[in-house]
C-alpha cells in the first residue's frame, strides 16, 4: 500500500508530531516501502486463529485498592518542564 503525502501529513497529525513540508516526500517513500514489505502477511491463512495479545499465559492479578506510596508531589513535579506551584502547566485550552 503506497501512502501519499497527504496521508502521511494526516498520520503525523494523529501522532502529534510536527513534520515539515520538506520531509513529507521522503517519509511517504519510506513508509510506503515498509508497508509494502509487511503486506506479505496477507498471504498467511489465519482464518481460524485467535489473535495473540500476550505471551504471558496468566490472568491479570488483583490487589488491594490501597495507597502504596507516600505523597510525593514535589518529586513528581520536579521533572515538569514548566511546572508552576503545585501544577503542571499547558497552553491555554479554553477561551
Amino acid at each position: 500500500m503506497a501512502l501519499d503525502q497527504k496521508t502521511v501529513a494526516r498520520v503525523a497529525m494523529l501522532a502529534r508530531i510536527k513534520v515539515t513540508e520538506a520531509d513529507l516526500p521522503g517519509l511517504a517513500t519510506e513508509l510506503s516501502g515498509i508497508l509494502g514489505w509487511i503486506e506479505q502477511l496477507q498471504a498467511v491463512d489465519t482464518s481460524d486463529v485467535e489473535p495473540m495479545t500476550s505471551v504471558a499465559d496468566l490472568t491479570l492479578p488483583m490487589r488491594e485498592d490501597v495507597v502504596t506510596v507516600a505523597a510525593q508531589r514535589d518529586a513528581i513535579l520536579a521533572n515538569g518542564p514548566e511546572a508552576n506551584e503545585s501544577f503542571f502547566t499547558v497552553p491555554k485550552v479554553v477561551e
Binding site: 509487511i38 489465519t46 486463529v49
Partner: peptide, 10 residues
C-alpha cells in the same frame, strides 16, 4: 492480522 500470525509463530 499480525497478532494472528504471531499466534501461529508461537
Amino acid at each position: 492480522k499480525a497478532q494472528k500470525v504471531r499466534a501461529l509463530i508461537a
